[in-house]
């Protein structure tokens, strides 16, 4: 199996994710959180969006400590690919697989709307199909997407070219108004040190078919397919 989509109690975007992976030709199956091992041959683990464990304690906190996450940690340590979207991004930060944390949106309002993202680096298996500075449109739907990290972490993310996406206008300008959730440095998505783990708040999987209003998010999944084919 090429890709595994993790399902926690309260996950609700696993089917959108499955369809996006199918559109890029990536074989996948859905795996329940109580499993302690990943299927043999898993190249990519996907943590989809939703409200795992009802967002109790902190978003993603309980899911990050579930049995299957030990297997994900081992997969990541082996250099495996991991993609976390929305609640999946929150789970990855809670698990310590990505730095920082996602706080309550600065406005305290749940944001459900399309946003524009500027691609900040094409140097990753997730963003290789874009050129730096490209702009894509994607839906977002979250109450806790306000990225926070300390000064040292932010400096490292910048210096190591690990900011994958920033919130921007349709013209690709990073402005305070475009950064609706108040994220530090307008960060919408970041990469791990080995660039094989990506976490982001918006939903590129929900922009991969003309029926969804566009295919702006498809290059992300095609880039992953390229990387899996080369692996």
């Amino acid at each position: 199996m090429q890709a595994v989509i993790l399902l926690f109690p309260g996950t609700n975007r696993e089917r959108d994710m499955a369809q996006a992976l199918s559109r890029a030709g990536i074989r996948h199956r859905i795996l329940f959180h109580s499993e302690s091992a990943l299927p043999a041959g898993t190249d990519l683990v996907v943590l989809p969006g939703g409200f795992s464990y009802g967002d109790y304690l902190r978003c993603g906190a309980i899911a990050a400590r579930s049995p299957v996450m030990e297997a994900v940690r081992a997969h990541a340590a082996r250099g495996g690919f991991v993609l976390g979207v929305c609640n999946g991004f929150q789970i990855l930060t809670e698990a310590g697989l990505l730095p920082g944390a996602l706080l309550r949106n600065a406005t305290l309002r749940f944001l459900s709307m399309d946003c524009h993202l500027r691609v900040e680096t094409s140097d990753s298996p997730f963003t290789r199909r874009w050129t730096r500075g490209a702009v894509l449109r994607a839906p977002m739907a979250h109450g806790d997407g306000n990225y926070f990290c300390d000064d040292a972490t932010l400096a490292a993310l910048q210096a190591e070219d690990r900011i994958a996406f920033r919130y921007a206008t349709a013209e690709g300008e990073v402005t305070a108004a475009a950064n609706r959730n108040g994220s530090r440095d307008a960060i919408a998505g970041i990469l791990s040190e080995n660039r094989r783990i990506l976490g982001l708040m918006p939903h590129p999987e929900d922009m991969t078919d003309p029926l969804q209003g566009g295919t702006d998010g498809l290059p992300l999944f095609l880039a992953i397919a390229d990387a899996l084919a080369a692996a």
Binding site: L57, E94, D150
Partner: peptide
């Protein structure tokens, strides 16, 4: 340390 609080924030 391991669950109730997130040391980052």
């Amino acid at each position: 340390e391991r669950l109730l609080a997130n040391g980052v924030i």
